[in-house]
C-alpha cells in the first residue's frame, strides 16, 4: 500500500503583496512554508501508516528551495519525498501541474515491485492560489475516483469509506474502491510537530528524490507555461472606496429605503 501526499510550498503570510507590473506575488522577504492544509493531509497519511502497513510518499513540484517543505514532511515521519523540479515546469497552471504530478505518481508505481494499491491524499486547496483544482484534475489524469472535502476516512484492504462535508451542515458517506484520491479539510486533525529526532533523520539519513521532465518522459506541450490552459491576467486587491450610507428612521422606513437603494444598484 502506498499513500501519496501532494504538497506545495506557499508564502507564509496571509497578506501577500502583489507586483502591479507583473501581476505576480512578491516573494522576496516572505517566508516560505508548507501549505497549512497539506499538513492535515500528511497527518492523515501518517496516522494510516501507523495503523496499517503503508509507505507514505510526499511529492511537490517547485524550485530546488521547495526541498525545505519535503524535509519537513520527512521530519514529520513520511518515508520518501519526491521533488519535481525543472525549468520547463515553471509557470504551470493547475492543469499542467496535475499532468506532471500524475506522471510522477505513475513512474513511482511502475518502478515499485508489486501491484500495490494506492491512495492519494491532498489538502483541499493551497493558501496562495486557492483554486482547489489540482486534486480533482490529478484524479482525472490518473483515471481514478475522487472524493473532495473529506473530513473522516476509514481505510481497509482495497476500499475507503469517507465522510464528505456537503454544504454547510450536511455530511455524505461515500465508499469507493482503491486506488482513489481524496482531498481533506483543514480542521479534521491536529498535525503533529516534527520532533528533534525527526528533524535529525530528515537532514542526515534521507534523500530528496528529484524528477525532471526527462525522467518523467513528459510531453513538453503539456508542462509548464506551454501546458497551461489558463493565464493570470491580473491580480489585485479589491479597492475599498469607503462609501457608506447611514439610513435613519423606524425599522419599516429603513427597510423600504434599503430596498430602494438595492434596486437602484441592481442588486435586487
Amino acid at each position: 500500500m502506498k499513500i501519496f501526499v501532494c504538497t506545495k510550498q506557499v508564502p507564509g503570510i496571509s497578506e501577500v503583496k502583489i507586483d502591479p507590473k507583473t501581476n505576480t506575488l512578491i516573494r522576496e522577504g516572505v517566508e516560505s512554508i508548507l501549505n497549512p492544509n497539506d499538513r492535515n493531509a500528511l497527518e492523515m497519511a501518517l496516522v494510516l501508516k501507523e495503523e496499517q502497513k503503508a509507505e507514505v510518499i510526499a511529492l511537490t513540484m517547485g524550485p530546488p528551495q521547495a526541498e525545505e517543505i519535503l524535509r519537513e514532511a520527512l521530519a514529520m515521519g513520511v518515508d520518501k519525498v519526491v521533488l519535481l523540479s525543472d525549468r520547463a515546469f515553471a509557470g504551470a497552471d493547475t492543469l499542467a501541474t496535475s499532468y506532471t504530478l500524475a506522471l510522477a505518481i505513475k513512474k513511482i508505481l511502475k518502478e515499485s515491485d508489486s501491484e500495490e494499491n494506492y491512495l492519494i491524499i491532498c489538502g483541499s486547496q493551497a493558501v496562495d492560489g486557492d483554486t482547489g483544482q489540482v486534486p480533482p484534475e490529478l484524479a482525472e489524469e490518473l483515471g481514478i475516483p475522487q472524493i473532495t472535502y473529506v473530513q473522516k476516512l476509514e481505510l481497509s484492504e482495497d476500499k475507503i469509506v469517507v465522510e464528505r462535508k456537503f454544504r454547510a451542515t450536511e455530511i455524505v458517506v461515500i465508499e469507493t474502491k482503491l486506488p482513489a484520491l481524496i482531498s481533506v479539510l483543514t480542521d479534521i486533525n491536529k498535525p503533529r510537530f516534527p520532533t528533534m529526532m525527526g528533524i535529525m533523520k530528515a537532514y542526515e539519513n534521507s534523500n530528496v528524490i528529484y524528477f525532471d521532465s526527462k525522467n518523467l518522459n513528459a510531453d513538453i506541450s503539456k508542462i509548464g507555461l506551454n501546458g497551461s490552459m489558463t493565464e493570470v491576467k491580473k491580480i489585485f486587491f479589491p479597492e475599498r472606496n469607503g462609501k457608506r450610507i447611514i439610513l435613519e428612521g423606524s425599522p419599516e422606513e429603513v427597510v423600504k429605503k434599503l430596498c430602494h437603494h438595492l434596486q437602484e444598484d441592481k442588486i435586487l
Partner: peptide, 14 residues
C-alpha cells in the same frame, strides 16, 4: 545550515 534553520522554525512554532 538548513537543519539548524528547521530546528529554529519548528521549536519556535512549538
Amino acid at each position: 545550515t538548513e537543519k539548524q534553520k528547521m530546528l529554529r522554525k519548528i521549536t519556535r512554532k512549538f
